[in-house]
Amino acid sequence: MCLLTFQWQPDARVPLTIAANRDEFYARPTLPLHAWPEAGGGQIVAGQDQQGGGTWMGVHQPSGRLAALTNYRDPGHNRADAPSRGGIVTDFLQSPLGADKFAQALAARSDAFNAFNLLLFDGQQLVAFESRHRRHFAPQPGVWAVSNADFDTPWPKLVQLRRAFAEVLQAHQAAESPDISPALEAALWNLLADTCVADDADLPTTGVGLELERALSAAFVHLPHYGTRASTLLQHARSQVSVVERSFGAGGVEAPLGTVRLRLDFGG
């Protein structure tokens, strides 16, 4: 997951709404959103990185736990032998620990991984984790976003998506309905499909060179060998999660399986 925006309204009928893009190399084998074979204690519902075995965003049924991860862009400090960060998501989904306790325990071992950001929801508490600082915090109600830097770092695509996301949710009263309406879905797909790049003067400097910084400044990325592989919309209500995912291949072409829609019910 390389660009994620979310609305946190803990007292609303729908406390958590997410729109996100996952960027990855096209050659990295991936399974789309699906229910994984059950392992004692419940079932993970997520896409799956077949190389590392984990996922970038998933939900656990029947507990309703949710986690989503973005990588921190720092090519000069990445280690080729570091374990896959996608396993952190599955660890939380299957953990008995609450979000805060899990984040506390994770801080002690997060240096084993290349840098990342993590969003955790245990059904009651929402926690954001930044491995680079070994820091976790509870986001205040409102609209947030994270890409490949710390939470709410004002990269152009993050600022634009967060603002537009808030406007769309308000227009469609998304926090009032547990289902993603067709109109809301269409509006959010448009936001995630934006291929406009930022002006060079507004680009961050992350060590990948100007040409690549420019290409990665779009919400929807499509390079010859790397780009947006999945776009995901999710609404987490009190006893239900609605999730829709679109998968893409090289050049931003939608994958043959197209769109996957799932509705998960759990005790609330």
Rank of each mutant, 00 (worst) to 15 (best):
66 L>K: 01
144 W>T: 02
156 P>K: 08
68 A>F: 02
125 Q>R: 12
136 H>V: 02
128 A>V: 04
136 H>G: 01
71 N>G: 11
69 L>P: 10
116 F>W: 13
80 A>S: 15
104 Q>W: 10
100 D>E: 14
103 A>R: 12
83 P>R: 11
74 D>I: 13
92 F>G: 08
100 D>K: 11
126 L>H: 01
129 F>N: 03
88 I>R: 08
138 A>Q: 13
94 Q>N: 10
154 P>G: 07
88 I>H: 07
87 G>H: 14
87 G>K: 15
112 A>F: 10
76 G>L: 07
122 D>K: 06
97 L>R: 12
160 Q>E: 04
107 A>H: 09
142 G>I: 03
81 D>N: 08
127 V>E: 02
94 Q>H: 08
87 G>W: 13
112 A>L: 14
82 A>Y: 07
148 N>H: 03
88 I>Q: 06
69 L>Y: 08
130 E>Y: 02
146 V>S: 03
160 Q>C: 03
65 R>Y: 03
104 Q>D: 12
93 L>T: 11
105 A>K: 09
92 F>P: 05
120 L>F: 03
96 P>Q: 10
95 S>D: 12
105 A>E: 08
78 N>V: 08
108 A>I: 04
140 Q>G: 00
99 A>M: 14
158 L>P: 08
132 R>A: 10
121 F>W: 13
122 D>Q: 07
145 A>P: 00
111 D>E: 14
72 Y>R: 07
150 D>F: 04
143 V>L: 00
155 W>G: 01
150 D>M: 04
99 A>C: 14
160 Q>R: 11
147 S>A: 12
116 F>M: 12
83 P>H: 10
81 D>W: 01
103 A>Q: 08
79 R>K: 09
132 R>P: 00
106 L>T: 03
110 S>P: 02
93 L>Y: 11
93 L>W: 11
152 D>C: 03
84 S>C: 13
70 T>L: 14
145 A>E: 07
145 A>T: 09
151 F>H: 07
91 D>G: 10
103 A>S: 11
101 K>S: 13
121 F>D: 02
73 R>A: 11
139 P>N: 00
82 A>F: 07
